[in-house]
Design a protein around this nucleic acid. Structure first.
Lengths: 120, 120
DNA sequence: TTTCTATGCATAGATAAATGATGTATATTT
DNA sequence: AAATATACATCATTTATCTATGCATAGAAA
């Protein structure tokens, strides 16, 4: 059986991943990487699949930038790394969400040819 | 005076440009590059600015892929290159718009925490 | 008339984000 | 016992966009 993959979601549109991660952390308090990827898959009905090769580097980058902090937890012999937002991270999350939604609105208005109200 | 540039629109989120070009061509029949960049700037109130270094390579790629055709027009001593959609280009435009809007919806639902109706 | 701005296309090199592929390991289910 | 799920990691590749630069004509302003 073949899975028809939408073009734009094949490669996550660049710029959305960090915002997705940040908002999930804001919502859930703390999460670990694998958990994030599961939740995104579940809540988007499999439409968005974050690859490990994208997720872990993105988390490391957010950590380097001071947006999130980490806490390692032992799981028997395995480890799990929980992340949560820092204070700067909370502000950045807010800004990024506004920015992204605004961008989506702008592009949608353009491609769906929704003219400004003044022309309606 | 300083211009505060939104993060995500600084670099056009990758994946949106070709869709923008295609929809404008569908709407206007035929357009040339410079005209496309002007119209995008005008209709987005300057929020989206397509750079020449992005626009012309994108047009050439769409041409190579057979999505658009070109027609060179002499303007005195200058030239202007008009593009219009091919038949495959029309179908692709439709598909890309649906795909992009769907992706936007999915991401927005995720980051704005709009749960599926079944959970409401 | 000179100069600045707008029009118009083009390309080479840099950047960066996401992916694919691969690796290691433990835990759980079948 | 084998397959699948959990859990993190990294390297090399891809590719879309940007920056910077270039050339050239047209029109407006000074």
């Amino acid at each position: 059986m073949m899975y028809i993959c939408p073009m734009h979601t094949k490669e996550l549109i660049k710029g959305t991943l960090s915002t997705i991660i940040l908002t999930l952390l804001r919502e859930n308090g703390r999460m670990y990487g694998y958990e994030i990827s599961r939740e995104v898959k579940e809540r988007t009905a499999g439409k968005i699949l974050i690859k490990e090769g994208s997720l872990y580097p993105a988390l490391h980058k957010l950590l380097d930038e001071g947006m999130i902090s980490k806490e390692e937890v032992a799981l028997g012999k395995r480890k799990r790394i929980y992340y949560k937002l820092t204070k700067p991270g909370m502000e950045t999350t807010e800004a990024q969400v506004n920015d992204l939604v605004s961008f989506f609105d702008t592009v949608q208005a353009l491609i769906l040819n929704e003219r400004p109200l003044s022309n309606a």
